[in-house]
Design a protein around this nucleic acid. Structure first.
Lengths: 336, 336
DNA sequence: CTCTTTTACGTAAACGTTTACGTAGAGTGG
DNA sequence: CCACTCTACGTAAACGTTTACGTAAAAGAG
């Protein structure tokens, strides 16, 4: 069994209170006893028990992160950012993947509650009433990452999807394209679906280009297969378009693949711009032009916000809208 | 503040011992009091404090996972498997990314020790003496994932890299190629580097093909850039080869990209087989033929092993060599 | 030199559980 | 109806810390 504070106290010939004080740098000990205690600690290799500390301090220095899925490539970077910042601030991260399943999510929340974690980061999913109420009862701070809640006052960090989509579309317009299509995610998705569609439409409108429903494909999700299918439909439905805005990089990969399989040259025949800037975007063939979210930074920011709330005791903190940027690579070409 | 067992006891008119007994289904209470207690629990929404439980039971139902980096695409699937199995078995997962930094790793180990986690999964990195000794002192079980230790008796789960590399090479040979190159990782990497090189050489030898050092490029790591550079060197150095074994999928992507940029047709001019079967392998252009590791399954297996050790109290458990498989897609072609 | 303040501790309670032990009452066998 | 065994509890200690409170000695003020 590992040594306890008692062992240290006994060996150093002081009380456990004194040991605790030097451990936590609280006033009330002389330089001499400090040296003595530290020496014993060193000698025994004593390390304090965070569980016992957690019990009395009501603080576990652990936060929970809920992802809908661990397979999406977005989460890697988010997690990376969160973990880096959390560790920097002295906390550990427990990951949970809910598979976008309400029941599973509630089970996880219960587990996290029992573990008495300090805070929650909720990623890329809709914050249902049930979740919100439960977390509220837990009485710990929460921040949303890459999602937001219209119903509840929960701070979030995101990019402005509508602006970003607007930028992407505008970028294509500026390259001389005027027949532009979009492969969007679900139009019922209020977080990642609708705003991007809105941004797309708005950019067209602002450029005086008529929008027709034929130019947009609504897929179910934001995955590779959706891109593959979406591209097929779009090409059939609107063969005249010369550029496409894909609502995610994975969709763009699907579109790229379909194009490759059917002899459509990218960007010669049609230009494609993606959304996300996943690490593999630059590995694509050809390297994918995309509007990038600062994924790692977003993760870091979410973690910082959480710790800010933790320290200040505030239940709310300012939302953060991080800037997107367009990464010009090789899937978009000026229209001749 | 959340309710405690005392609140439940008082409200139910029993002692805390009784509440604890019904919570843990230990004998010593009547059906009637059980109902009564459960009713109060329901009513208050009481949930036990896992921290207090951890303190007295010396078990936190939490395991730690150490990754060298969270950005590699392998970890997503590993983590997915680990988290799924751990959760199934009632434990949470704390992720740590050590950035392959010894000092950082030790810091993490110390943190995990203080948190009194139940076990450790150590992924894709060399188990240094320092780490091993420390974990040993912690007195908790550990399993290695996608790595192994020659120096210490630690159970691991892996695929047989040498066999897998042999299979990959053999696959190319069977397609009629006899000038085969390899872009390997570091030859000093005893886990992922050397065995794959050995398998490659052995397959050539068994087919009676002379091996020349010109046909192999030793890169530093297993990333995209390594593939890009490696392909360039290889093409310059040995233009006669018709097929390439890439020691990782990311390397293969790099090679694919270089080929694309320089008008080398894959698989018409040269065939490529990768290693890993990352989820993006099938999104490549063209879809990447590769020898696949069952990544998620490996993660699950590692977690199962850890829990087996935890339950049985054994310090050791059988190693698991999981089968690899060749995924035939479109980057390898029969040689005319 | 005396009185007060400060310093440097020690003692013990508290955090929320589990569990060994004790005990009163019910049930059982003869 | 007695002796015994169960059953169904309650009491209190323990897990490893932190911290409020008490106190003796040292330091400082006059």
């Amino acid at each position: 069994m590992a040594y306890t504070i008692k062992d240290v106290a006994k060996k150093a010939g002081v009380s456990i209170a004194t040991v605790s004080r030097v451990l936590n740098n609280q006033p009330g000990f002389s330089e001499k006893t400090k040296k003595k205690v530290q020496h014993v600690i060193e000698e025994l290799g004593y390390e304090p028990n965070a569980v016992a500390r957690g019990l009395i301090n009501n603080k576990t220095h652990t936060i929970g992160v809920l992802f809908p899925e661990l397979s999406s490539m977005l989460v890697t970077d988010f997690l990376n950012g969160i973990e880096t910042m959390a560790h920097e601030l002295g906390s550990s991260v427990i990951v949970c993947h809910t598979e976008a399943d309400g029941e599973k999510t509630m089970k996880y929340l219960q587990l996290l509650n029992e573990k008495r974690i300090d805070g929650i980061i909720f990623v890329s999913a809709i914050l249902k009433e049930e979740y919100y109420n439960y977390i509220r009862k837990m009485g710990i701070p929460m921040v949303l990452l890459s999602t937001e809640s219209y119903a509840y006052p929960v701070p979030y960090v995101k990019v402005n999807d509508q602006h970003a989509a607007y930028s992407a579309t505008k970028y294509l317009l500026n390259k001389g394209h005027n027949k532009i299509g979009m492969i969007s995610g679900s139009k019922d998705d209020l977080i990642a679906g609708k705003p991007r569609i809105m941004g797309f439409k708005m950019a067209l409108k602002d450029s005086g280009i008529a929008f027709t429903e034929d130019n947009i494909i609504y897929s179910k999700g934001f995955g590779f297969q959706d891109g593959l299918d979406g591209m097929e439909k779009l090409m059939k439905q609107s063969p005249e378009i010369s550029a496409i805005f894909a609502a995610s990089d994975e969709i763009a990969f699907g579109a790229l693949s379909f194009a490759y399989q059917h002899g459509i040259k990218i960007p010669d025949d049609v230009s494609i711009i993606g959304y996300d800037n996943l690490s593999i975007a630059e590995m694509a063939i050809p390297p994918l032009t995309t509007v990038g979210q600062p994924l790692i930074k977003m993760g870091k920011t979410a973690a910082s916000m959480l710790f800010e709330m933790l320290e200040s005791g505030n239940v709310f903190v300012e939302n953060r809208i991080l800037p997107h940027e367009i990464l010009e690579r090789e899937t978009v070409r000026e229209k001749r």
